Computed example of a mutant assay.
Amino acid sequence: MKRVFLYSGQGSQYYQMGRQLYENDIVFHACLERYARIVLDLGGRSVSEVIYDPARHPSDTFDSLAETHFAIPAIQLALTDMLMFRGYEPDIVMGTSLGEYVALTVSCQISVEALFEILALQVTLLKSTFASADKDPYGQGMISVVAPNDEALEQLSTFESALAGRVGSDTLVFTGMRPVLNRIMEFCHRNGILAQRMSVAYAFHSQLMERIRSPFLERCPPVSSRCSPIVVQSCVDGRHEKPGPGMLFDILRRPFDFQAGLTRLSHHNDIMFTDLSPTGLYTRPVKETLKRDARTDSGIVALLSPFGSDIQRLQSYERKKGLFTVEDVDRV
């Protein structure tokens, strides 16, 4: 039995994410506060104060890079700490975009301190290079598109140059300047394809990221790895080499493919996926893949949801000892 933890990137965040756990689980609370102190020491805002601002509602726009770039990893790391404290340790970790940095941290390929230093450097470079990206209506962004059939996927291939990544067999993420994204949105609207703007103010995984390549490679903090039995499954190219500045930049720049990552795990007979993204982003694509492959010995469950019930989800997870089948997913 292989246990796989999944981590997400920009666009999966919302205010009050994990609040029930923060208020009721001492391990989750303590670990999130630890990461909040690290971010404070780097000159940022406390992630717990940002996320749990009483004036903010989960539906409010949450796209300030100086806040989200730290908040998303901190939440997912605290969730991981909470589960590992209870004895649920992953055999494999996999993430997309920002989530791949979290996966590298959980597998001890980079330290927690180095992770947040790397993220702080990215925030500094992006904000100084694209000073008005989060205010300019002609600036940058990302959108998520769900294609209803193969014909729609073929039509969307017209915009291949703007593709940031694939979350599932039918779910694509596009990135770039907003005029380009507007054309994709208009195309989707005309053709009955579901498309949604993401709460992301920068065009990650686009050519625009090349503008920070040189300063990032020059200033990237040193990374030291520790021996760990946890395997990282990359959604960039599947490699497992030790991270260096070039690899760390590729995670930010190159397209990701979560579906390809799932395929690389297909040789395992039974896998229990734990979706640690704040929104349960991976539950649908993993569930559909398992059902398509008739993998009744495998399953997935998400711990967080924008609709709450985090405590009940954790309790259900523990009752099942983290072992869910495809049939269990609909009842969680």
Rank of each mutant, 00 (worst) to 15 (best):
L83Q: 05
T80M: 06
Q76A: 04
K287E: 13
G165V: 07
R292E: 13
I212P: 03
T171G: 00
M84W: 02
A302W: 02
S59M: 13
L21N: 08
Y14C: 01
V236G: 01
R226V: 04
L98W: 03
P58V: 05
N182R: 14
G168M: 07
M185R: 14
K287H: 12
L98P: 02
V39I: 15
M247Y: 13
G238V: 08
S64M: 07
Y14S: 06
S305V: 08
R313I: 01
Y282V: 04
V145S: 13
S305D: 12
S46W: 03
I38D: 04
S224W: 04
G18H: 04
C31L: 05
V286M: 08
P255Y: 04
L21G: 07
N149C: 10
E160H: 14
L83H: 09
A195T: 04
V332I: 15
F28S: 10
V102F: 05
M142Q: 12
R239H: 14
R19M: 08
P306N: 06
Y101M: 12
L163N: 07
L248H: 14
S59F: 02
Q315D: 14
R183N: 14
D81T: 05
K242Q: 12
D136H: 11
V50D: 09
H189M: 05
L262Y: 06
N24I: 00
V180M: 11
Q76L: 01
G165M: 06
L79S: 10
Y202N: 13
A201E: 14
A114E: 13
I118K: 01
H240C: 03
T158K: 12
D150Q: 15
L21T: 03
R226G: 07
S225G: 01
P54K: 05
V145L: 12
S64D: 13
L121G: 09
T68K: 03
Q13A: 01
G165H: 08
V4P: 02
R3L: 05
P243Q: 07
R213G: 03
A78T: 09
S309N: 11
S214T: 15
I230G: 08
I51V: 15
D60R: 11
T283C: 13
I38S: 01
Y138P: 00
T175K: 11
R313S: 05
